[in-house]
Design a protein around this nucleic acid. Structure first.
Length: 486
DNA sequence: TTGGGG
């Protein structure tokens, strides 16, 4: 927001301290100097005027004094993370009643305070005033609520139009700091609105939250090194101990279940253990380990419980419902618009099944078609690889989609058809590298080296058991009816 | 005064 920012404006506001900003008059209309939030913060202790958008709406409640109070969070272009504004009034009807986040508020003569290193805006009921306007879809210049003693300013219409234009590109509800699983970024801090599906304590004492928002985490880049697969296989899940089957079966089959780790014990965890809740995980971070996303709570992180009617929750559920409107929307979000023509599959007409749907399926034995990435293979190079076509070996692939990772075997009888014939070692290596997303030597020179990005491939899988007395413990996956194209 | 991610 290009409010009348600048040091001069700050000095002007400083002159107006005590007694409130006295508006200069021009053509009969009051003229207030609005500061951007960033500039206003340079003048703690002074009264300032701010034009901003409401990004969070608190509930009105009785203060410990004689008043009613309400906290809003407002933001502008200079501070998209926003700042908290506290209002007081002896009658709740006098507090701002914001119709929707994204609405615009004009604040006159509010005070900036700095407490514990954090800035706040205080609305003084004797000296301050506010006006509320519709957000980006509105073209109305008349406020829908106005406090006592609020005088419109000459620049209001112009600044309101600018603010609405900015809002078009920065819609509220999805704040810059609020990410969904589909757009999380490594080592950034953000808020996540998610359903807490399960909470447990790892043997290390660490707490693990299993959270979900109906979207898929992005495909990760993997390390090129594959020769350690025999000794230390690529893990199938970020936690040390996998979830017991009865818990696994309660998790959703579409959308990633992110593991969020926390060293801190808090009473929030006890609350969350009892039931499934929607929550806002504030100021959390995430990283990739072995190509898997995992979240972490920081000392500054907070968990806020949300109701099912919360706007962000309703939005997430709407998005999730949309994924069921068509078959293709259930497919990994990261695979969309990336045609997968690496393999030919037998199950041309079969529907699509996520790995989680198969893992939680009621019967061990079943066949399905899925869309996955090959994150690791053993063996994957040299003589060992070639002996698959002639010898008595089977190939172990580590497959992933946004919902799970599994080991799937290419049985010795299927290896020739999987690779499309008795290939030379060179041809076989080329096909394997394509599956694993290992860059071609010429690509590597262009700076793609260092990581690999396996493509999405269609593949037919069969789930079966080795031991009828321990069907789930002895479950295996086997690839069939799938051929890598030339 | 209150209140300060209620």
């Amino acid at each position: 927001m290009e409010a009348s920012s600048s040091a001069a404006a700050v000095r002007e506001q400083k002159r107006q301290r005590e007694g409130g900003a006295v508006p200069s008059m021009a053509a009969g209309k009051a003229k207030y100097k609005y500061l951007s939030i960033a500039d206003a913060l340079k003048a703690p202790g002074f009264r300032v005027c701010i034009f901003a958008t409401v990004i969070e709406i608190g509930a009105a409640f009785r203060s410990r004094g004689t008043d009613f109070t309400l906290t809003l969070r407002i933001a502008d272009q200079s501070r998209t993370s926003g700042i908290s504004v506290t209002f007081f009034a002896n009658n709740p009807g006098l507090l701002p009643c914001v119709r929707s986040s994204g609405d615009v508020i004009s604040l006159h003569n509010v005070e900036i305070k700095l407490l514990h290193g954090e800035y706040f805006v205080t609305f003084n009921k004797r000296l301050s005033s506010f006006a509320l306007f519709g957000g980006m879809v509105s073209t109305e210049f008349t406020p829908y609520q106005i406090s006592m003693k609020h005088h419109g300013s000459e620049l209001d219409n112009q600044i309101l139009t600018q603010m609405r234009l900015w809002l078009v590109y920065h819609p509220p509800g999805l704040k810059d700091l609020e990410l969904q699983l589909w757009n999380i970024k490594s080592d950034s801090t953000f808020d996540l609105v998610c359903k807490v599906l399960h909470v447990c304590q790892a043997p290390s004492g660490e707490w693990i939250f299993y959270v979900w928002d109906g979207t898929d985490t992005p495909a990760t880049e993997l390390q090129t090194l594959l020769d350690t697969e025999a000794v230390t296989p690529t893990p199938l899940h970020p936690e040390e101990v996998p979830l017991p089957r009865e818990v696994l079966c309660t998790l959703p089959c579409v959308g990633t279940v992110l593991r969020v780790f926390s060293n801190r014990f808090s009473k929030e965890i006890l609350h969350l253990q009892k039931d499934i809740y929607w929550a806002r995980f504030c100021n959390i971070t995430c990283k990739q380990e072995f190509g898997m996303w995992q979240g972490s709570l920081l000392p500054s992180s907070r968990i806020r419980l949300l109701s099912n009617e919360d706007g962000s929750v309703v939005e997430r559920l709407k998005t999730y419902d949309g994924r069921f409107a068509t078959q293709v929307h259930r497919e990994p979000m990261a695979s969309l618009h990336k045609t997968s023509n690496i393999t030919d599959v037998e199950f041309q007409r079969a529907g699509y099944t996520t790995l989680m749907e198969s893992l939680t399926h009621g019967e061990v034995t079943h066949k399905f078609k899925t869309l996955v990435r090959v994150v690791a293979a053993y063996p994957c190079q040299g003589k060992e690889l070639h002996s698959l076509l002639t010898g008595d070996y089977c190939l172990r692939l580590t497959l992933e989609d946004p919902t799970a990772r599994i080991h799937a075997y290419v049985h010795k009888d299927d290896a020739v058809s999987f690779f499309g014939g008795f290939l030379t070692l060179a041809a076989l290596t080329r096909k394997m590298n394509r599956l694993l997303g290992v860059p071609e030597p010429e690509d590597a020179e262009e700076g793609i080296a260092g990581g690999r990005n396996p493509p999405w491939i269609w593949c037919c899988l069969k789930s079966y058991r080795l031991d009828k007395y321990d069907p789930w413990g002895s479950r295996r996956y086997r690839i069939f009816g799938t051929e890598i194209r030339d």
